[in-house]
Design a protein around this nucleic acid. Sequence first.
RNA 1: GGCCACGUGGCCGAAUGGUUAGGCGCGGGUCUGCAAAACCCUUUACUCCGGUUCGAUUCCGGACGUGGCCUCCA
Length: 456
Amino acid sequence: MNLFLYNSITKKKDEFIPLDVNKIRMYVCGPTVYDEPHIGNARPVIVFDLLYRILRNFYGNENVTYVRNITDVDDKINKIASEKYPDIETNLAINKLTMDIEKKFKDYASKLECLSPSIEPRATEHISEMIEIIECLIDKKSAYVVDGHVIFDINKYDKYGSLSNKSQKDLIAGARIEVATYKNNPLDFVLWKPSQPNEPYWDSPWGKGRPGWHIECSAMSSKYLGQEFDIHGGGIDLIFPHHENEVAQSCSYHSNEHMAKYFVHNGTLNIEGKKMSKSLGNVVSLNDMLDTYHGAILRFTMLRTHYRQPIDWTKNSLEESKNILKKWISVSNKDSLRAQEVPSEFYETLLDDINTPQAITKMHAYFSNKEYDKLFGALNFLGINIKDLSHSMISEQNSKKDAIDETEVNKLIEERNSARKAKDYKKSDEIRNKLELMGIKLQDDGDKSTWEYIND
RNA sequence: GGCCACGUGGCCGAAUGGUUAGGCGCGGGUCUGCAAAACCCUUUACUCCGGUUCGAUUCCGGACGUGGCCUCCA
């Protein structure tokens, strides 16, 4: 069976036919590093990590190149850097902020058990490539210069709007912002803009300035993946204007029909039924999330919903994931770690537009049928490291055990077991209740009793 | 306001023009002094209104609802 992916260009599920089977190329829009990464950032990271694994499995590890950029030039970055480090010089403050967030982002990605992309280029290291593209676009009359701004002229790109399925007429009708006076057309967008004295800048043919949004992805994808590549990924909220503008720039620059053969977009994430936003105060940071749940649990929770569906991020769902994984881990052994074979029915559902919920259904069946090799082979393929997770679950118990007086607990358990032997069940139940009040759940196994700390 | 997507049982969540999705929870049972865990059984849904069809949750139209984008937020 071949791989099928929903392609935003054609708006349907297409068979994936690479441009070159020996050189599979995927570009995914990475984070703009201006603020603490949140759980919404994690979705594309996890989804495209899984797609990367599928591609590697299908075409061979060495034949797949995965580029995920770091956008470290952005007006929000400037604003936050100056607020956060008011006493430091602008460029240093920006560097401090972006390096810090980038480091966190990579750390979280690895805790979510994501493989490192082949290349993680930073925008600021590709300014000259951006300038080169902009110059070419001016030469081709796809862009014009006004007072230090360079603006892309969307009327020079016929297919503008086709990716995001928008018409110029609708966009203008729906516009709610004032049109910048330097634009010929309200929908034209900025490739380069002049910098004020307190803003970071690079020298350019149009004076001291900085790139607009979008151009960094055109520059970096061209550099590392070529004029046209296989898959361009990112969140659906990026389809307009970001991806639309990237396509317009890249295709005009290369005189190409396509920037990427397939555009793959993941759905959005809500928090307890509401959209995550700063104004609602419900932004969940990855840092907090990873403090509460092991990365594998977050990863599994993310994959329990199909990547194109909106996902509702709830505590209930996380707890359910945790219980399922706990149950599966309970039947693992040393061989489980070595289960490398990917069961074919499971794999085929993944090839069908990465249908993870259905793949997980197969895993439930493997568990019920005691086909543990298949179960752990599948878990392994999903990138869920059971060894690490089970260690974490054990140490979680241990750290909770540390918080209470274990000798006291053991003494009570002994007392209770002798009461049980003497068939003094009234007393044994009293002790059980007492332990429960202490937050301890007992489990009798023959004449032995095991116990664990009750989670809140 | 404009454009777009989605709306499945208590909850999560797929597929599908006609046949049981699956998981969690609830309920019942086996086991256990009682529990827990485990296992077995059970729980028949597709927002509403029209249309197409022998037959629609599935296709088409409309209504309502939720969400996304149009504000350089994944």
